[in-house]
Structures are given as C-alpha cells and as structure tokens.
Design a protein around this nucleic acid. Structure first.
Length: 188
DNA sequence: CTATGGATTCGCT
DNA sequence: GCGAATCCATAGA
C-alpha cells in the first residue's frame, strides 16, 4: 500500500501504518532523516481529545487539509508539534508524530537541540530536531522538498497500542502506537 | 474585553 | 518528582 492510500484511510490505521516511515527535512538547507517510532491518532468530531472536535478554526485548519498535509501547532506556548493530516480534505483527522530514530543528520539535530541525548523522543523535541515551526504548517508532505514523508521499512519489533499522552478526554481510546523495541519508550 | 487552558520540556531537588 | 517557562486562539461576559 502506498502512503497516499494509507493516509486517506481511517486515522488509527494510518497512524499504525506510519510507524517505520521516513521523514526527510531539508529545512534551512540542512538534511535530517528520521524513522517514526511513536505516533498518536486524533479523530474528528467524535474524538473529544482532538483539536478538530469543535470544528475547523484558523488554528487547526491544516488538520482538515488533504491527506499528507502538515499540521503544526504550538504547545504550551513554547514547543511546536508536527502532525500529518489524514482522511480526505474536509475531514479533521491527523496523526501526531511523537517520536523517531535518527537515520541521518544527527550532528544537525544535536546542534538544533542543544544537547546530545533525548534528541527525538517527544513531539516538541522531534519538531525541533527537524527544524519545523509554524511556518511549515500546511505544507503537503507528499510533494514538498522541504518536508517529505516517504515509505520506510516496516518496524522491526512489536507495536504497542496504548492510551494517548497528555490528554484528559477519551483516555480509554488506545490510539498511541509505539514500536516496542524503542529502548526506554517514554510514558508507555 | 479578559480569562483560560493546553497533544511539553527541562532543570533543580 | 515538581514546577516554571510562555503563546495565543477560543470561549464567555
């Protein structure tokens, strides 16, 4: 199955299927490549934990974009979080990219993050590692050179489904997917 | 108009 | 383990 097909389908399926996919960032002229190891699915009206729950707004508009559209939002006033819009345009579903392993560009990431460990094991960290900020909201990651999503090898390990992190509603929905071989998988 | 509440991270204890 | 840092769209008056 190709990425476009995957991203047009149900958001929990898409999230699970994105594990192992590669994300290539060429932001600021520096290349960083990561392989996704931790994602969360966020639905539309029926998912009270989702930003799209109360409909389309200026802030979450990209969530309603075509499959593969980047939805970038500011979290807690200081961090950026990167999501991939899922389902046909007009439907507010997205997959939050929470964690990854670095495939290429580790030195760039260390410089951007200002540290040598814990580089990409959290949504804010991952966005910073890739150089993603509010300017990149709305980018089509299936066609952009700046931020490109491309198929990768299936995850080498068991995939766990757990409750999502940091939310207060819909806690029982098992929509966080983590590759179990990720050593020290956070808050599992 | 003002108040509020986060899909978090880091440093200090 | 705990709390501070810090933005701004949304909701309510």
């Amino acid at each position: 199955m190709n990425l476009s097909t995957l991203l047009t389908g149900p958001v929990d399926r898409a999230a699970r299927g994105l594990l192992g996919a590669h994300l290539v960032s060429r932001i600021d002229g520096e290349t960083v490549v990561v392989a996704l190891t931790e994602v969360e699915a966020y639905g539309a009206d029926d998912d009270a934990a989702s930003h799209a729950h109360r409909g389309k707004t200026k802030r979450n508009g990209s969530m309603f974009g075509a499959p593969g559209t980047a939805y970038v939002y500011r979290s807690y006033g200081m961090h950026w979080c990167l999501n991939v819009a899922v389902m046909p345009a007009g439907v507010g579903s997205a997959v939050l990219l929470r964690g990854a392993v670095i495939v290429d560009g580790e030195s760039v990431v260390k410089r951007r993050r200002g540290r040598a460990t814990g580089l990409t094991d959290g949504p804010g960290k991952l966005a910073q590692a890739l150089g993603v900020n509010g300017d990149h909201d709305g980018i089509d990651m299936l066609t952009s050179d700046l931020l490109e999503l491309r198929p990768g090898a299936a995850p080498d390990g068991i995939v766990l489904a757990t409750p999502r992190v940091g939310i207060s509603k819909e806690v029982e929905r098992m929509w966080r997917f983590v590759v179990a071989t990720t050593v020290g998988a956070p808050r599992g």
